[in-house]
Design a protein around this nucleic acid. Structure first.
Length: 278
DNA sequence: CACCATGTTCCTTG
DNA sequence: CCAAGGAACATGGT
């Protein structure tokens, strides 16, 4: 589910549901997701605290709390890894098989489930410091200068969270297609014009995904809770349909008809049109 | 059984 | 010290 747009949608969805709610209890079901914070410490710290705000930075969720007694504020960091989800559900509902952490909000639970447990819910905020700017805050000049310092293929470089925070494997391919730039081009060989075009394309792709995601009805996960199932893919193909190259190997380019090609870069799949992206 | 998957981190190599 | 490449993490789908 989670590249920047999905996390942004999730933050917008959860924010009004959580604000002001007091956490009655926390249960860490899968201990590795709190690393490096000890699970019991997370439980102890969050129990009795109140949600003040929820924001997003890159692909991270930043939960702000007010502690019960001291009125001091502190934060926790969430990350959905490859297959994480968060949703609010009625307490009587059955928890998913791969529930990682449950927050007791009274009549409801905030559930963090993670099929592969690659994600996190932790008190360690340090990953935030390693992030580069949001796509919306980076200047074309700054982007170009950063690219000049790397000989890596531009597709691989786009996934570097210290360059732009939030770009993942799907939108990296999509942005390069939109900018008509080959994923194999070395970062330091993009012209100033290409860099500007790529940054603009990246912003557009991310913003359009947020806009689109906002229109997708949040699917109920089980029964009649307000569970978030944004990444859901039913017959309509809500999710895939709007992607132009990702996961379309062998299918015709929507602009020129050439077969979309799939290659491996940095151990991850890249999709591109060999004709449009010279 | 083999291979692939929206991400990050750690280890090795050069 | 840094850049780059690859494995590891854990589970499920095809």
């Amino acid at each position: 589910m989670p590249e920047m747009p999905e996390v942004e949608i999730l933050a917008r969805h959860l924010r009004p549901l959580l604000r002001g709610k007091t956490i009655r209890g926390v249960r860490v079901c899968r201990e590795r997701v709190t690393r490096p914070t000890p699970p019991r410490e997370l439980e102890r710290r969050l129990t009795g605290a109140r949600f003040k705000n929820l924001s997003r930075r890159g692909k991270y969720l930043l939960f702000e709390f007010q502690s019960k007694r001291s009125r001091e504020t502190f934060s926790a960091l969430g990350h959905l890894g490859m297959a994480g989800r968060m949703f609010v559900a009625l307490k009587k509902e059955k928890l998913p098989r791969h529930t990682a952490v449950v927050f007791d909000l009274g009549g409801r639970n905030l559930v963090y489930e993670d099929l592969r447990y690659f994600g996190r819910m932790t008190l360690d905020l340090s990953p935030i410091d390693a992030l580069g700017p949001e796509a919306s805050e980076l200047s074309p000049t700054g982007f170009f200068r950063a690219l000049k310092r790397s000989g890596q293929a531009i597709k691989v470089k786009l996934l570097d969270q210290s360059l732009i925070a939030g770009v993942g494997n799907i939108y990296a391919s999509e942005a390069l297609f939109r900018a008509r730039i080959s994923p194999k081009l070395a970062a330091n060989r993009l012209t100033k014009e290409q860099a500007a075009r790529l940054l603009a394309a990246t912003r557009e792709v991310l913003n359009e995904a947020i806009k689109f995601g906002s229109t997708v009805p949040l699917k109920t996960m089980s029964g009649k809770s307000d569970a978030l199932f944004y990444y859901h893919n039913d017959g309509e193909g809500y999710y895939e349909k709007r992607l132009r190259v990702y996961d379309r190997a062998g299918k015709p380019c929507l602009k020129c008809g050439t077969q979309i090609r799939q290659i491996v870069q940095g151990a991850r799949s890249t999709y591109y049109c060999p004709k449009c992206q010279r």
